[in-house]
Design a protein around this nucleic acid. Structure first.
Lengths: 341, 341
DNA sequence: CTGAAAGCGCTTACAG
DNA sequence: CTGAAAGCGCTTACAG
């Protein structure tokens, strides 16, 4: 293992100079710097994280996070991941300050961000609403030297470092694959309940779903797409209507939240009702319904990692200033059934 | 953050003494030790891994691993996990030396273990065959101060530190849950192809499978259980026979390997054949069959973690000598379909 | 039984 | 532009 010390000896300079050269801190003669870099390259130098971490304790890293988690159990696991990551990095003087909002409001998010900035956070994790004003906010933060990672919901056209979250299109394709499996070639009529047609992710799930049934499962038809606005009162009402409708669907596919309302309506209709429900995610609210069989199967999208990864990535970035390998870090989607719990 | 230095100041002793007291190295007056421990407790002292790691570089940790991976693509991901873990810990002077065997032979495994010991490894990761002689070997290693973690396959009655791997019973239950979902209340006749009735894990999968269909899916019947011995020639032949049999099953559930042989037989029978195949794991061999629809769905068991976790756990153990929280660290099982790839 | 000192690999004022 | 030194938190011979 090559260390800075060894390189310094070989180059005949001090360790400080090697540090400056290798980390492009300037203030070093370009010829000397190039010689040092060449030696490092030849010896396959890799900076040692333990040494780095120890030195970094003199300048702790404060990370801020803003999530619309109030009243939304989906984010429970995201926050667990966030805290676990913080705990694992506590030896490296990393701390995470979390602010929450209820619902999706750009104003509320910006307010929380400003609070965090005044607390002195040096990096941010955001789950931004899809509005121009948030793009501007993110860009001005990044310009001011505060790196931003988007989690769960992306703003592609902003200067965020990267996105960590669901591959919504793939999740939709998987849902279609699962329905195809269950339909087994027989006709199946599906109603899609989506969150909002204004939310990019939800639309991507629907497109993914359609792309697969069009290609592989002509026996599956979608008779309706309705918005729940992630509101369980709305999803309850819609589901009640479906149950009474003359063209009762064989299955419901929910791309987003408000799962509780639909489950409640199906549960009230009793075990005789024959609509099968397929959802994403698994929360404290939906869990009992998977156990009781109201939900046939669900496709979670690793919310834990959506909290865990951004902290790690911002820490890495603070050390080496190299942006993450991937512009979009997709979390795993996988199917679970009652017996998985 | 409390450090050893701070505790030393408060206790009015040297850092060396604090270190000895907190890590039970002996050679310290019991009253002084107790006072130091009390201070550490009150201040919520947690040893800093970065400092620890740096000091540990003077005594690098060499871990040995023995896997029956030759000719068995299942272990590809296990080894990827092993190497990734090694890479992440390289700053902590951890290295992993891997030896492989072809097939399951206690003699071959013991020979590899002895080679590793003579290379000076200080801890071992094993995927032991289920034989008394391996229990004895593990026990004598542990008695000699070499901690052992079993991966993928356990020997519960040995002195291994812990097991990392599949919850076979749960995997079997999930498979049954999935078949129940697909059967949708209609009669379904299943043939189980297992690896060997002498392998504990395979039997646990079968029991798990039965427990669920007995409780929840009376419409599912198991007409036959056959052994493939993880040999694709055998599974090919069995599957051919099933295809020609008068009581052709609706589905095959494979608990173990030899998936390739069954897939080949089903593929040769053409798309008109109506047997649906459910398996565990996903390998370079089985992947194309999931893509082409020969395999309806599969339940991998996170082989990557089976390599990744043991290295981390042995490293942690080398630092603090505390055995892992769990006696059995189960890796995740989850259902994937073609669209998951 | 205890302490002083050196060292793991890195960074960073400070002095020149 | 460069070096010497101190320090992050821990461990460990060595001396007493």
């Amino acid at each position: 293992m090559t260390s800075i010390k060894k390189i310094a000896e070989i180059a005949g300079v001090s360790r400080g100079t090697v540090d400056r050269a290798l980390n492009n801190r300037g203030e070093v003669n370009e010829e000397v710097a190039e010689r040092i870099r060449a030696i490092a390259r030849d010896l396959g130098y890799k900076t040692n994280r333990a040494g780095l971490a120890l030195a970094a304790r003199k300048h702790p890293l404060k990370i801020g996070a803003v999530f619309p988690s109030e009243g939304n159990p989906y984010f429970d696991d995201v926050i667990t991941g966030l805290r676990e990551s913080e705990k694992e990095l506590s030896d490296y003087a990393v701390s995470v300050s979390l602010k929450t909002t209820r619902g999706f409001s750009a104003d509320a998010q910006i307010q929380r961000i400003d609070e965090l900035i005044s607390e002195g956070v040096q990096a941010l994790i955001l789950c931004p609403v899809n509005e121009k004003i948030m793009v501007d906010k993110i860009n001005s933060l990044v310009d001011a030297g505060i790196p931003v990672i988007t989690s769960n919901s992306d703003l592609e056209n902003s200067k965020r470092l990267c996105y960590v979250g669901t591959d919504y299109s793939k999740s939709g394709r998987m849902a279609a694959g699962l329905l195809g499996l269950v339909a087994a070639g027989n006709p199946m009529n599906v109603v899609i309940l989506t969150g909002s047609i204004h939310v990019l992710g939800h639309n991507q799930s629907i497109s993914g779903f359609y792309s697969v049934i069009k290609k592989d499962y002509p026996n599956i038809t979608v008779s309706d797409v309705e918005e729940t606005l992630d509101n369980s009162d709305v999803s309850y009402r819609i589901t009640r209507n479906l149950l009474e409708s003359s063209l009762k669907p064989d299955a419901i596919y929910m791309t987003a939240g408000a799962v509780g309302g639909t489950c409640r309506a199906l549960a009230e209709a009793g075990s005789g009702q024959s609509i099968r429900l397929f959802t994403h995610d698994i929360t404290s609210e939906s869990r009992p319904y998977l156990l009781s069989g109201i939900i046939s199967a669900t496709i979670p999208q690793d919310p834990y990692q959506q909290g865990y990864m951004p902290v790690k990535l911002l820490f890495d970035y603070s050390l080496d200033k190299n942006p993450p390998q991937e512009d979009k870090v997709f979390t795993n989607s996988y199917i679970i059934v009652r017996e998985s719990l």
